[in-house]
Structures are given as C-alpha cells and as structure tokens.
Design a protein around this nucleic acid. Structure first.
Lengths: 247, 247
DNA sequence: CGCACTTTTGAACAGAATCAAGTTTTGTGG
DNA sequence: CCACAAAACTTGATTCTGTTCAAAAGTGCG
C-alpha cells in the first residue's frame, strides 16, 4: 500500500540528526562495511562545499559529474519552462541525495537552488559506480535511493492528480513535519524555508491559494502561522484531511 | 532544458520495433558486450511469460523479486488508495522496464495490469545486481533506466502542476505518438489501449473532461477520434498547444 | 444477441485561478 | 541602527475551468 503522505526520502534512513561530516559516511554506516571499505568511501568524499542562499548548486543543461548529498541546509529542485514558469519537483534537506535525474542523460535536468545557506558533499558519480562495483552494499543502496525517489514522485503524482487544495497543503505540512522529526527537530513547530509561491509550485496551486488555505487552517485551529513559522496544533485534523482523500 | 513532452522512456533506446526475444538481450545489445558476457545475460533471462488482458502482473504489497521487461503488449501501473480511487502512474509498452519502484522497499508499491494480452520477461533483481557487478555497462545502464524514470516523473509533475486540460491531452497524445513511432508503428494513427477514465486518472482529469477534450480536438480538426482509434491530423496544432504552456 | 461497460453530451455547480489592492516583512545601503 | 525599496504575503471580488450529476447512445465481450 502507499503511505498516506508522499515520503520525500532520498534521505539516509537511520539519520537522526544533522550530521557534521559528509553524509556519504553516514550513508555507509548502516551497511556494516569493513575498515578498509570505509577507507575507500572516505577517499571518494570531497570536502563539504558551501552554497549561499539563493545560489544554484547546478542548473538544468549543465554537464553531470556528481551527485550531491545535502550536508546542511535546504534546497529546492525545479524545472523551469522557457516561458519562465517553474515547477518545483522537490524540497531537500540534510541527508538527502540530489541530482539523481541527471544520470539519465549526463546532463542535469533541473535546477537545484539553496533556500538557505547550505553545505553539500560532492559525490563524483563515476567513482561512485566504481565503488559500487567493489562494495555490493553500496551498489544496492544506490539502486534503493533511486527507487525511493521514484516512489516519492508517484506520491506527488497522486497528490497532484487527486487531491484538493486543502488536502495538498495538509499532506505537505505533515510531510515536512515528519522529515524534520526524523532529523531530530520538532515535528510540531518548524520554519518554512520556501515562499508561498514555491509551495504552490510544488503542489500545483497558486500562491494565493496556499496563503488562503494556511489562513483557513489557522482559523480552524489546526495550525498557527506566523509568516514562515508553522506550528501544528491539531495534527490529527490534518491527517484526517489527507486520509479522507486517500483512504 | 526539459523536453516538451514528458518522455516515457524506460524503454530501450535503440529499440525500433517489437522484439520477439526477451528484451534484456536487446537491452544489452547497444552495450557492446563480449560473447561470454552475452552468455551471462542469456542465462539470467527466463522464458517470456504471458499476461492476459485485465490480469495483474503484480500488485502493491507483494514481495519484489524481479523487474519485468514488457516483451509485447501494454500495461498500466497505478497506485490505488483505500477508498478505491486510482492514480495511474504510467503506461508501458514493448521494451519498457517496470517494477523499478519496488527496489526501494522490496515490496511492490503499485499495481501493474495488462491492458491487452501481453508477454513479459522476468528479470530477477538479485541476479541483475550480480550481473551488474560483473558487467559495468549493465550497472550503468540500470542506473540510467532508473534515472530516466525519475525524469519522466518530473515531466508528469510539470504536466499535472501547470497544464490545463487541453494541454495535458495534447501532450499525452504526442507522447503516445512518439513512443509508437519509436517502435516502428504509425505516429499518426494508433489505438488507445486504455479507457477514458484511465487516461483521466493519469492526467489528473475526470473521464468526462477527457472525452470532451478529445471531441473538441476533433471539431477543430486536430485529430479524428473513433472510439479508441486516434488519428492525428494536425500534429503541429497539438504541439503548439503544449508549447504555449511550457515554452 | 444481450447485458455491462464505456463513451458522449448537456446543465448546474464548485473550487481554484485571476485580478486587484493593501499590508507586512526583509534585505540593503547609508 | 534606521530608512527605504523590493519582495512576500494576505484578503476580497470576480471569472473561468473542470467537476459533478444525469441521461442517453454506442461498443464489445461472453
């Protein structure tokens, strides 16, 4: 069965909190590698690289060389049509792996932009593949991560294809809440890193609709909104909204 | 940049026509493998397996053992919510690889149902991974195929998030047309294997809207519709509809 | 050949988009 | 640290697209 909330989890499963080292290490920890294998891993990992808020980590059309693990911070990925309209395809936080779409053509197919000052870890893909051949667990893990991204996308398709505005926003808030909680932050109180417009783009809604719906949730006492600070008051009310749609 | 039409191409790139052998062979042909390597491949491939129209190849929740290559026929994949609503996540024809989503959890996350009498080739995933370790080109190809699925899903997200009904239908017809053409069939005249409702589910529209829009296209002379037989008369008119949206 | 499923078409309705204005917040430079 | 401009957000009124409800006609499978 499909989980109720589209799980945005290209993240490392057991990651419980922001990691200060590059996340490939953490990515490999649950795999139970030998000391020597871990050395291989460490060799691959380049130094963490800072990305300023508003800067692009990569843009569509650029040649693909590496995947990126978000070490710290927050990114959006989006495809932009020539007439300037943007479809946000995902929001990515600590531990998430981005750039998977670029493997298909050796070109990036979307933009990745930092929504706050961030740090990423560069994972050269050619070397990743080499490593994957040496260490089956890594090969398998990479397949899994990509598959998880596909599952997540299917969840978004369900959301975009079947849900009403309120249901979408509720699902979105629950998803964020869950992901923050997984990383050791509060599940009930968090800061939105993105604008209403970006939320709308992700959810297939206009920014006015996003704003109105958040206001409505606040009126109904489901949440408290203060700018980009969200406090979830009645998480069950949100859950019910979503499950009314998807069962 | 993103291609105008969401490319549904988990297919084998150079496949030009329906293949009578299992498609893993074809999948490997462009990779320039040695005779011995090809023997490995052939060992992996099980006999083609027939799937009757209406039958499920697999269902969500079932344990995952193998990917499937569509040898012949036509499938839909969909996630079904508990209240019975269906979101079609893709339509799959000869040469497409399905089941990639299941790698993430070792459980299938969607249903795959044959829309006409079909044949598939079973590709046990564990053995695929083994083979991938021996033959780097296969490892890489598998990553590519999964990545391509992600790109395709992003295209669908763009469609669901940004396009109006007419644009969606136009994009859908163009996509089918292109994929039939790639397989050596007519690009301008083809048979829809799916109901209006299934089209609608895929495109985030109700079946009535699908029907109305097709009728409208016919009135305008863009296409001819006779039940499930589609003839594209003015392909440029459809292209313009789509590009008006996406640039 | 008949029954169930699919499709078409119409009319009324609902939800979200659009248009518009005003307010708040944020970031920047003096 | 303040002032100002730009960006982001809220809220209302109106419009429009697509849904819903309904009924009839067509198709095809057993």
């Amino acid at each position: 069965m499909l989980s109720t909330i589209p799980v945005q989890d290209t993240s490392i499963k057991h990651l419980r909190q922001a990691c200060s080292n590059c996340s490939l290490r953490e990515l490999c920890l649950p795999l139970g590698l030998s000391v020597e294998e871990m050395r291989h891993v460490d060799e691959l990992v380049s130094q963490g690289r800072p990305v300023k808020r508003g800067d692009a980590l990569y843009r569509a059309g650029e040649p693909f060389r590496a995947l990126f693990a978000v070490k710290l911070g927050f990114f959006k990925t989006s495809v932009v049509s020539e007439d300037g309209r943007e479809q946000v395809t995902g929001f990515h936080m600590t531990g998430d792996l981005i750039g998977l779409d670029a493997v298909s053509t050796d070109l990036h197919t979307c933009d990745a932009v930092a929504l706050e000052d961030s740090q990423v870890c560069e994972l050269p893909f050619v070397e990743m593949e080499e490593l994957a051949r040496k260490i089956p667990a890594i090969q398998h893990h990479l397949y899994k991560v990509m598959s998880r991204e596909i599952v997540r996308d299917h969840g978004v398709m369900l959301l975009l294809g079947n849900m009403k505005a309120e249901e979408r926003i509720a699902a979105f808030l629950l998803n964020l809440s869950q992901r923050f909680a997984q990383r050791g932050y509060s599940a009930s109180s968090f800061h939105l890193r993105m604008t209403r417009e970006e939320i709308g783009s992700y959810l297939g809604l206009k920014l006015e609709t996003v704003s109105r719906t958040l206001s409505k949730f606040q009126e109904q006492g489901y949440i408290k909104v203060q700018n980009r600070l969200i406090e979830i008051i009645q998480i069950d009310a949100l859950r019910q909204l979503v499950s009314n749609c998807q069962g």
